[in-house]
Design a protein around this nucleic acid. Structure first.
Lengths: 210, 210, 210, 210
DNA sequence: AATGAATGAGGTTTCATTCAT
DNA sequence: GATGAATGAAACCTCATTCAT
């Protein structure tokens, strides 16, 4: 259950190793259900060392989550930046999203853990990443829009709603896909795109609320 | 804080009253953050009585949730049934969804509580309702489809993905809407419909994945 | 080590019993050195019950201390009130103080525990009693003083210093007496009185600081 | 926060530096509330070095305390020795006491820390100093007494009680003075002297307890 | 002369749950 | 039909102290 040769590692290596194990456990069972004792046991060390390095459970979780969050955002961000036009950017972003999850399934679980306690610092930090992801969707929607529209209050609300919807859809499809696992990342991306892109495109073109 | 006249009620009345209070607390703070002590105090009774009636915390939550789940499903189901064509059915369902949330926000919070512990019975039971909701979306997609297509494996997957996406989008928009609260239920419904319906329609018409 | 017949007591009896045991332990070893586990074991119950009744360790200590503090203050207060003139009042108060300690040595230890953590609620509550005791000394000093003097700032300071000194002396003698235990309470009281009363009397008569 | 140039010092310099920092922390927050981690951080060195030099927390505290204790005793002792008659000696001692506290408040805090754990070695060592201080008071009392009286058991007890009272009063006034800080050291000394000297003098003259 | 890494042991507190009446 | 009293089990966190270099 633990890495038996309890050797002395450098601070950095130890932190990395602890993050790996913790990430794994958090991903599997959620924040609340994982105890510091388990993490310590799994890492082959004792609890105080964790506290020494990370301060407390929340900070440890945040450290796990930020590793994943940064990687995900970077991945999407890169894909989006490389795209040639807004429509392509959206597709590229979605594809990067699913590919990332495919490569690192735990990352997803930690980033979108649904058992996070309301009102703590963790949830606040997670939101930062969620907001960044939503902004990618928002960009795609805004991009196709005439400049003069963008500043209208009603439009801003509309865009926010649309990008929230898109992110929600993406999360749900991702969850479903990771659970059933019968199709590839690319297919999952296709399915999501097929479902939400028409809506985004029509919105980008003109007004939609009466 | 509690219902002062702690008179002896009939079993059913007592259960109903306990459910009301518990529902309220769960909705406000989430499953994990509510303690049995609080529920008892809030309901003006003692803990053993709760255990006597509901068995344990999970069962109590399930009881709360099912009340809401049944009501929501019924509400949507009614709206969908009354609609004239599939396209109208979808819109009617979405509107019923948002109107329901508007009327009874607590119901929503309990049904879509994100802090539910992984792997317990509760989450299983919640999924039943989520699946029912997803099926409404699926119906709309399927409805417009030629019968012979419906049985193909690839199509079934596609429909499942699409309806999962739609439900995810609906949840996300609902959460966003309830948090910001700057628009009406009807407007929120419009925004969701505008975002996802084009995708559903195009899918209903023809194949999209090779 | 514990009261073996772990019977069910009424809330009041149980609280009283817990206070007795806790008081004992706190008196013997000081606040910090006593653990909740020990108190529970000593009382023949489990920790949660203590928390259920007293909230936390601090509150439990405060409950112990207030029992003693009230008794002590009442005892002195009674003696002082019954005295005929200020000089007699002081002596009566000191005698009551030492007699009280003689009857209930633990009370003293809890009230004047020197290991209390700085800055907590406990120390604040203890100070209330210490201040009350100091006020008894202050009364004796003020009583013999011409009214017109009492309001002068310099006099107020003087009186405060004198009564602080007297209380300090009383505490020290009490500690010494309880430790060595070679004389009676009455003799201890005599010794204290002989040491500080001349100073109080001379002060009461006239000005002493230029 | 720490002495940055972590150069290699001679053993003695290093110890001196560590004592300074530790003393400071102990004085500010009391024995129990200071952790070895803090001391190390504050001194800009690592914990093992402290253990290497002082053995453990208790010994470190003792080392701090003895520096102060020696200085205080020396200071009073010098003042007393220089005085011309017993009465003047007492006053000189008290003045030296308050002046010392005024000059070095940290010293006082460490010597009279009230949070020292019962029954440890620390408290034993502190008592040595407290006893020395008490002996100064005892000398003043004894000095004015006829030689033949001094050996009587009852007198020895009396003198011990009186000097205990005086030291207690001095500590209390000192604490009060340092807290409120509205008067000078000299005035504080005056106030204490005015309160306790009459008692000492009357005792020195004749018997008082039957 | 000094360090970075690591631990043993214990402390307070919480909570779902049951016993006995 | 309902209660007051009580518990088992575990969670998070801290701190003085040592090992290996």
């Amino acid at each position: 259950m633990a890495s038996s040769p309890r050797s002395r590692l450098s601070r950095e290596d130890r932190m990395e190793q602890m993050l790996d194990r913790a990430h794994n456990l958090f991903a599997e069972r959620g924040y609340a259900a994982v105890t510091m004792d388990e993490i310590a046991a799994e890492a082959g060390i004792t609890k105080p060392l964790i506290y020494n390095y990370f301060g407390n459970k929340e900070q440890l979780y945040i450290a796990c989550m930020e590793r994943s969050g940064d990687a995900l955002v970077e991945s999407i961000s890169g894909a989006v930046a490389d795209a040639e036009d807004p429509s392509a950017a959206f597709e590229a972003g979605v594809r990067a999203f699913f590919e990332f999850l495919d490569t690192d399934r735990d990352a997803w679980a930690v980033l979108f853990d649904e058992t996070l306690p309301h009102g703590g610092e963790v949830i606040e930090r997670v939101s930062v990443y969620r907001r960044q992801l939503r902004d990618f969707a928002a960009q795609s929607t805004l991009a196709g829009m005439p400049g003069k529209l963008r500043d209208r209050e009603s439009v801003r609300t509309e865009v926010e709603a649309a990008s929230t919807a898109v992110l929600g859809a993406a999360e749900a499809v991702a969850r479903w896909w990771l659970q059933t696992g019968s199709i590839t990342a690319s297919e999952a991306a296709d399915l999501l795109i097929a479902t939400v892109e028409p809506g985004l495109r029509s919105r980008a073109l003109g007004s939609s609320t009466p």
